[in-house]
Design a protein around this nucleic acid. Sequence first.
DNA 1: CAGAATCCGGTCAGATACTG
DNA 2: CAGTATCTGACCGGATTCTG
Lengths: 118, 118
Amino acid sequence: MEKRYKTPKECLGKLMPVRDTLDIFQGKWKIQIISVLMYYDECSFKLLKESVKGITSKMLSKELKELEVNQLVEREVIDTRPVTIRYRITPYGESSRDIIIALYNWGVEHRKKIIGKE
Amino acid sequence: MEKRYKTPKECLGKLMPVRDTLDIFQGKWKIQIISVLMYYDECSFKLLKESVKGITSKMLSKELKELEVNQLVEREVIDTRPVTIRYRITPYGESSRDIIIALYNWGVEHRKKIIGKE
DNA sequence: CAGAATCCGGTCAGATACTG
DNA sequence: CAGTATCTGACCGGATTCTG
């Protein structure tokens, strides 16, 4: 391996997968929703709304749709009266667990650092 | 360990570190900037701008400031003519490597899945 | 219960131009 | 080179109301 300068072009290649991932998980809510679904295994709309603190019906609905399109979350309609809806994480969504764990761990350490300061 | 229902309140506790982390890395650019700085070790404003594709001076400047405040990035002014500025990732910023790696890995797998489909 | 519809302000962020 | 300044449209997302 010869030593040479790194270029923006090479860097872009390294960066692309990260950009792809960010595109999908972008925003304030998606990661939180997935985390909650991992926690509960399955979940109603109402429970999701109570668990993702601060989210509105509108946002929750919108984000769930986008997660469904990307096949990270699945929505099951059960034919009861009134209908029951269950949200569940898909195996593909499950594959983002490493991301959630990394975010979680960093947050725990961050909190230690911040609290240690004050 | 006794078996019992999970509650939104417990869930919130689990979610908090994730929320903390998201607060800091939120947005389209911060993760990308950190990734680039990890790649180069140190970096000028110009090189950063060329490497984070699509970012404007304004956004780059703003995001760098926020990253500095959170001590993820440091800015060194070298007294030359004209002055040289170097951006570098801090050890604390370095601690987010696991997050970047998780995002990168997921992006690589995601691309395989998407391309396999078309 | 599980959302859809509407209204609406704020801020985000892009384009462009400019500075020491 | 390393940013700042200004302008502007887009859209994010909150509050509220309504529905089957």
